[in-house]
């Protein structure tokens, strides 16, 4: 029982590998009151403010709710949904965004973290500067970037014209071929700093012996990056990817402020479409938007489960 006398608040795996306690008092078990103490507040909040409303929504999806009259319609909304062109466009856009944009986010974050790690001067300043966009609200980011994308005097077009690339100056948010990409870039601009900080944290906690060994082997930076750093950061990167993925499956505010889903549904996401059907169409019907939300809930859950399985993110627990 020597370990017991070790200072408790020290994050050390200690010399002991074996369980010093008998099975009859397994420390990984707790009495129900203890578990309740830890879990009940969270579960109460969850059931009261998330599960119950969500359940209500699910029930609503089988009804037509016009004003004060509610009538049961069974699966009619779901059948209609299958033939709703706008919904499928919204699904396509959201999928593109959710799968592709996180790569951009995480890659930028990693590269920035590596730049700081490589020991540039004023690293502290850069770290603060690059993180700044994370702090801004979508309303502010939206306003700012709508000015940047402005056709007549936005920075982007002014710069393109100044270097003689006049033909590239475009209506960035107005052209259906460019709008989604433009909004995605804005979103990435906001979040790259966050990914940078997390990557930096992960790099710093890499075992130094490995990096030292690679230096002894005289690895180039590229080789070091692809053969050592990225594989070792895999769990972090995958978790960041999944976090970003979930965020993008729900993306609403920025789109709503910048394009409201236009032009020609080019930036319509599932969230904006749900919102439109619930608040912007000339109807009080909550049944149909509820059905969209219910379907989408299933899709996102499935996607996250598949990603988790594909990435084998279990390993983060062992890491």
């Amino acid at each position: 029982m020597k370990e017991a006398s070790l200072p408790i608040v020290q994050e050390s795996s200690g010399p002991a590998g074996k369980n010093p306690v008998g099975p009859e008092m397994d420390p990984r078990r707790a009495s129900w009151p203890v578990l309740a103490f830890f879990l009940v507040p969270a579960l109460a909040i969850y059931f009261g403010l998330t599960a119950y409303p969500a359940f209500k929504t699910f029930i609503d999806s089988f009804f037509l709710i016009e004003g004060r009259e509610t009538s049961f319609v069974g699966f009619a909304h779901y059948r209609e949904l299958m033939h709703d062109g706008t919904f499928w466009v919204a699904v396509r856009n959201t999928m593109i965004w959710s799968f592709i944009a996180p790569i951009l986010d995480v890659a930028t974050g990693l590269l920035l973290a590596l730049a700081l790690y490589a020991g540039v001067p004023f690293a502290r300043f850069f770290r603060v500067a690059w993180f700044t966009p994370v702090l801004l609200s979508y309303v502010v980011v939206g306003i700012l970037w709508m000015w940047i994308y402005n056709y007549d005097w936005g920075v982007l077009n002014v710069a393109l014209r100044a270097v003689g690339l006049e033909h590239l100056a475009s209506s960035w948010l107005g052209d259906p071929n460019l709008a989604l990409g433009s909004v995605m870039i804005t979103h990435a601009w906001k979040w790259a700093g966050f990914n940078m900080v997390v990557c930096l944290a992960a790099i710093h906690s890499l075992p130094s012996e490995v990096l030292e060994a690679s230096e002894l082997d005289n690895c180039g930076w590229g080789a070091k990056l692809f053969h050592i750093i990225i594989p070792m950061l895999r769990p972090t990167l995958l978790n960041l990817y999944i976090l970003a993925f979930i965020g993008k499956m729900k993306v609403f505010d920025l789109v709503w402020i910048m394009t409201a889903g236009g032009p020609l549904w080019a930036t319509e996401t599932v969230s904006t479409y749900v919102y439109k059907r619930a608040f912007n169409w000339n109807t009080f019907d909550l049944g149909y938007p509820s059905a969209i939300a219910a379907v989408w809930f299933g899709v996102v859950c499935a996607a996250v489960l598949i990603l988790n399985r594909a990435f084998g993110t279990k390993e983060r627990l062992e890491y």
Partner: peptide, 22 residues
């Protein structure tokens, strides 16, 4: 116009048509 038709109006006639997209 209502519902889907109003949505088509705002996306197509209000936006895409005068922009020359369709």
């Amino acid at each position: 116009y209502r519902g889907k038709c109003a949505d088509a109006f705002s996306q197509v006639m209000n936006s895409a048509f005068p922009t020359g997209l369709v």
